[in-house]
């Protein structure tokens, strides 16, 4: 029985290995290879000697963390609010959350300029109301990147969170209330722990996606917020140093895997 199931997915596995995994291995292997010399660590040494690329990586992590936090702060209450809606309103809310998926990331990103730019809706409103004399710089800085990334990635957090939340039986909260728990205790001791696995998974997903973001930081960050994917683009397409790009990618992959391993550990501990 089991072997027939395997033969059914075998072609897919072969496709995955050859079309996906081998090229990645080849890409990662590049960093250890030098023309005429064979195995080498010079590309990693180069990273340590000129740590500017590592600093870009660090900067990327920091921005990704901030954007992920912003996403959680917006996404969690949003998903919770959607849980409480009636069927029709809930459908509309889901559609509104998912809608950005259907719009090109470029269009979405430029739309923020119309809203938050120096001459954008928000700044014109603020100045018209006399709240500020000069436009507030929402864009072309880390704030802009954070807003943009949070917007683009929000569905990745909200949808799994919402799915987990609607599975929580209302009677659990009623039971907690009848046992004498005040609303705050009900939230932190009953509701929140039950959403935690989905929250952790969504947060991890968003964080990893943030690490690889390309378009949004380039446009909403005004090019002032160096991110690792932009650097990789330069190293692959402008000055072809694929070996260097490969070394950076390897470090990025390891960091991502470490974060994932930490998450798995926490998850297993929580469900043990």
């Amino acid at each position: 029985m089991r072997s027939s199931g395997f033969s059914f997915i075998a072609p897919l596995l072969v496709l995955m290995v050859f079309a996906f995994n081998l090229p990645i291995l080849y890409m990662l292997g590049l960093a250890f290879w030098s023309k005429g010399q064979g195995f080498t660590l010079e590309h990693y040494e180069g990273l340590v000697e000129a740590p500017v690329y590592l600093r870009v990586l660090g900067n990327t992590m920091r921005i990704a963390l901030i954007a992920t936090l912003a996403n959680v702060i917006i996404g969690y209450p949003l998903a919770h609010w959607m849980r409480g809606l009636q069927n029709r309103a809930r459908l509309i809310a889901i559609a509104l959350v998912v809608l950005p998926f259907w719009v090109s990331i470029l269009v979405r990103t430029y739309a923020w300029i119309v809203v938050l730019g120096n001459g954008g809706l928000v700044n014109r409103a603020l100045m018209w109301l006399g709240l500020t004399d000069a436009p507030v710089s929402f864009l072309y800085n880390e704030l802009g990147v954070t807003i943009g990334m949070a917007n683009v990635l929000l569905p990745f957090l909200v949808l799994p969170l919402f799915a987990a939340m609607i599975r929580i039986d209302d009677r659990l909260m009623q039971a907690a209330a009848s046992l004498g728990a005040p609303p705050r205790t009900i939230f932190w001791k009953v509701y929140f722990p039950l959403t935690l696995p989905a929250l952790a998974a969504g947060t991890l997903l968003v964080f990893i996606l943030c690490l690889g973001f390309y378009v949004t930081p380039a446009i909403l960050g005004g090019g002032r917020v160096p991110m690792i994917s932009n650097l990789l683009d330069t190293l692959i397409n402008q000055i072809p140093r694929w070996e260097q790009a490969s070394a950076i990618s390897t470090i990025l992959l390891i960091v991502t895997l470490l974060i994932f391993a930490a998450y798995r550990r926490l998850d297993r501990k929580a469900s043990a």
Partner: peptide, 15 residues
Amino acid sequence: GEAVNKKWEAFKLSL
């Protein structure tokens, strides 16, 4: 190109 690019990235980090 590559040497300049490292300086460029450092410059960008100083923004």
